[in-house]
Design a protein around this nucleic acid. Structure first.
Lengths: 164, 164
DNA sequence: GGTATAATTGAAAATGAATTTCAATTTCAA
DNA sequence: TTGAAATTGAAATTCATTTTCAATTATACC
């Protein structure tokens, strides 16, 4: 599936990695879980990614580094990462849950083409402000928000002009 | 699951029903499908609902009216309704696709409590404007958008103060 | 009204992502 | 070092979603 990005996203610096590890392992300690090599490897692989990964996609990437790590562990680690805010779920309505990492990224949002499933990220500080305002109004403790626009991208509009 | 609503949502008038039927059956004709009693019953039941229904929930409601209508038909009709814009999918990240009807409703959005899964709808014309602006900027033909805020609702914040 | 054609229906089967199970292994605090 | 508790990962399970298919029904055309 085609995925476009508006900005350039530099790979995480060693500094950023360490910071993320810190967040992750503090979270593990807090909920009484342990530090393992597998979790380390999965965290690192995940932070190096861009775009939106399904559990299976991340699993395949992790496996390249360490073939002994299983799907289940990736699945569970992804849940942990989501719990401590390093990852967040994105739903594109195609039946697969995807995750993207939230570390050191501006808050951003998606446009999804319902024709070719391509997704384009965009930034909108306004959406963040909106989220804060509304949460305050309803006494909600907002952790995150998603903003997605569904439609047809320019390319698909062009090609669909051709006779079917 | 608890569901709250900010506004009051009147049941559809006969007029509105007819208008929705018109949209639906024009769509069917356009794609070469047929008018059936089942589709009628499902459309009507759906329009009378509020909130966000899973296919199964709608199926149970439809079954009360006509016990011979099967799950598969409800499932397929819901897809058709989504195709012509009368319904739209809402993802709450709990593994079930829900639909809500879009007929005669202001565009609205959701806050979802990740603790108790309650969802609260809210309105935000700003979000609609945002969607239009962004789509224009990227030459996207925007059909719809979703804006969801995840967090902890006031009630859960209170109860979670109690010792676990 | 009759008829041919194509769509519809719904029960059952299939699919596939997400989740759980469990025995063997590993972590970590004491 | 040791023991209690968490982890791991393969396999099994769950469950929403989707497909299949034979019987039924709607519609266009006569």
């Amino acid at each position: 599936m085609l995925q476009k990005r508006i900005d350039d996203h530099a790979p995480p610096t060693r500094e950023a990695m360490r910071e993320a590890e810190d967040i992750f392992y503090k979270h593990l300690k807090r909920v009484g879980l342990k530090h393992t090599d597998q979790r380390d490897a999965i965290l690192h692989t995940f932070l190096e990614t861009r775009d939106h990964l399904s559990t299976d996609e991340l699993f395949r990437m992790v496996r390249k580094k360490d073939a002994k790590i299983g799907f289940t562990t990736v699945y569970r680690t992804l849940k942990l990462l989501a719990e401590c805010g390093l990852a967040s779920e994105v739903a594109f309505h195609d039946g697969v849950t995807r995750y993207e990492h939230q570390f050191n990224r501006r808050s951003h949002h998606h446009m999804v083409c319902t024709e070719c499933n391509a997704s384009v990220e965009f930034f909108s500080p306004e959406a963040g402000k909106l989220s804060e305002d509304i949460a305050r109004r309803f006494r909600f403790d907002a952790a995150r928000h998603t903003f997605q626009i569904y439609g047809i991208c320019e390319d698909c509009r062009k090609t669909s002009k051709k006779p079917v």
